[in-house]
Nucleic acid binder design. Structure first.
Length: 543
DNA sequence: AAAAAAC
């Protein structure tokens, strides 16, 4: 309620004149569709993002430790299957963009590290030749439109098929789910329910994800790929957990997909045994290994007592701390990195928009939505109440088809919101970090960070909801004076992935210095003044 | 560094 009032007040206090120049200035790098994007960025004096990124991944500016057993190759990346954008949504976007073939994205460099790394494959056919990929899986691949393996698929799948532990780092929207689902299905053999199965009784594969929505999405992907076979693939929930309390039912299950706490609850109640699990996958691994989830994960890992247990972790980001924990958990692991670690796809045109203060955010957003945009748009905020109140505020301002999603909503409300999104009924989805990871909405072409993300990882995952499977995307991030301490860090991410950043932001002092300043007695206005002094906007001309 | 998410 408080947040609601705050936002409303903000509306009344908005001074268009005062902020107009800032907003225009920092929107300069925004895309206006397909081909013109490159031109605009060229005008800023930079290389086009593709080239810039390419140069970077070629190792030009990056310092890389030469380590033993490490090799780097050009992966085909294979987002390369370019096609027209789906463009079945957003009838008011009306531009030639829909009909234009965008240039092929950069091929991602793939680097692997570990002992006896299996060769990658260049096609799904090769998986059949080398590993006898079952014909029904091949059929389902074709049926679901998978024609060529992406980078992570062509490297990761052979590794998993050869029963090795794997740590996979690959950008958002590059097909990580299939990379672990396919090997699991291939190795299952006969369903547990069948008399032919001699693989012991009980769950043989376990996939963990941080949110219900993501678990649900993974479940769907499994079902699609398993079509035609009788495996029991269970999305763990209160309801399914109850049915599995019966050991006979439980023994017939082949794959379980769950969130950690749900699983631990059943484990502790003695309603679930994991001693037959051969494949354990942690999706969004860094999220799963951070403080709140870690003990739950450890409990699950401990319960997976089968000697043939193989583990794999997947994520788009893996900070050093999480990577260390992951590597210690794995046995003789192979590490695969596609592209540059902690760098978003260059396909996403990113920009930073200065909004002065909290109160100016809403008006800026309303202005944004009063101009043409490509629905559906995902808007991220920092808390549940802010999500509800912002959604409410947009509705009050007659913005059509606004939706909201956060973990404070009931299971059904959440499911409905996701399904509206999937059906294209939501034009604007206001959400918390729940939606930041893993969710694959192919239509999303714009992400707005209404509240500034608190970590680079959060930023990368949030904007990774767009630009998926080789499509273009756009990401706008609002920042206020209060966000100054973290601004430069995020700005470097933009820069690294080929999006233009205003000079003055790059000239900001080191984040640590800014942070100390922000924590001290320094008035917020100081940042603005300093920014002006350094050369942002018209103000400098007065000097 | 801190919130959100998991039940």
């Amino acid at each position: 309620m408080e947040a609601f009032q705050l936002l409303s007040r903000g509306g009344a206090r908005f001074d268009k004149q005062r902020f107009k120049s800032d907003v225009q200035l920092f929107n300069k790098g925004k895309i206006s569709g397909g081909p013109s994007q490159t031109a605009e960025k060229m005008a800023e004096g930079d290389l086009p993002p593709e080239l810039d990124f390419f140069k970077y991944v070629k190792g030009g500016t990056v310092k890389r430790k030469a380590e033993n057993g490490s090799k780097q190759e050009e992966g085909d990346g294979n987002l390369a299957k370019r096609r027209k954008l789906d463009g079945d949504k957003g009838e008011d976007t009306g531009s030639e963009e829909e009909d234009v073939m965008v240039p092929a994205p950069p091929r991602h460099r793939v680097s692997t590290k570990g002992s006896n790394v299996p060769n990658h494959v260049d096609s799904f056919q090769e998986l059949k030749d080398r590993y006898g990929l079952s014909s029904h899986l091949q059929t389902n691949l074709t049926k679901n439109g998978y024609t060529h393996p992406t980078g992570i698929q062509s490297y990761g799948i052979p590794i998993l098929l050869e029963s090795r532990d794997l740590a996979a780092i690959s950008p958002t929207g590059t097909g990580k789910t299939l990379a672990y689902v396919l090997p699991i299905l291939q190795s299952l053999g006969a369903p547990s329910s069948s008399s032919k199965s001699n693989a012991g009784s009980g769950v043989r594969a376990l996939i963990l994800a941080p949110t219900r929505e993501l678990a649900h999405q993974i479940h769907n992907e499994c079902l699609r790929m398993a079509e035609g076979r009788k495996w029991r693939i269970v999305l763990f929930s209160k309801a399914t957990a109850a049915t599995l309390a019966d050991k006979n039912a439980r023994d017939k299950v082949d794959i379980v997909i769950s969130t950690p706490l749900r699983l631990v609850t059943s484990l502790q109640a003695g309603n679930l045994a994991l001693n037959n699990v051969r494949h354990l996958v942690l999706d969004e691994a860094d999220r799963m290994l951070d403080a709140e989830f870690l003990s739950q994960i450890q409990e699950v890992v401990a319960a997976c007592s089968h000697p043939q247990l193989r583990k794999a972790v997947f994520s788009a980001t893996l900070p050093a701390g999480a990577e260390k924990i992951a590597m210690e958990m794995l046995q003789d692991p192979i590490r695969v990195v596609v592209g540059l670690k902690d760098t978003p796809l260059p396909l996403i045109a990113q920009s930073l928009t200065y909004v002065s203060d909290e109160a100016s955010k809403l008006p800026t957003l309303l202005t944004y939505f009063s101009q043409p945009y490509n629905p559906p748009v995902l808007v991220f905020v920092s808390s549940q109440p802010r999500a509800s109140s912002l959604a409410e505020e947009l509705v009050l301002n007659n913005i059509p088809n606004v939706d909201c999603l956060h973990a404070g909503m009931t299971k059904k409300e959440r499911e409905d919101a996701v399904s509206r999104m999937r059906k294209g009924e939501s034009w604007i989805m206001v959400s918390t970090e729940v939606m930041a990871r893993g969710m694959d909405f192919k239509g999303v072409r714009e992400v707005i960070n209404f509240d500034f993300p608190t970590t680079v990882q959060s930023y990368i995952h949030r904007i990774g909801r767009t630009g998926r499977a080789g499509r273009e995307g756009k990401a706008v991030t609002f920042f206020t004076n209060e966000d100054a301490p973290f601004l430069k860090t995020i700005a470097n991410v933009l820069l690294q992935s080929g999006s233009p950043v205003a000079d003055w932001i790059l000239k900001l002092p080191k984040p640590s210095k800014m942070k100390r300043k922000a924590m001290g007695k320094v008035k917020r206005g100081d940042f603005v003044n300093e920014a002006r002094r350094i050369g942002r906007g018209d103000a400098i001309k007065k000097r």
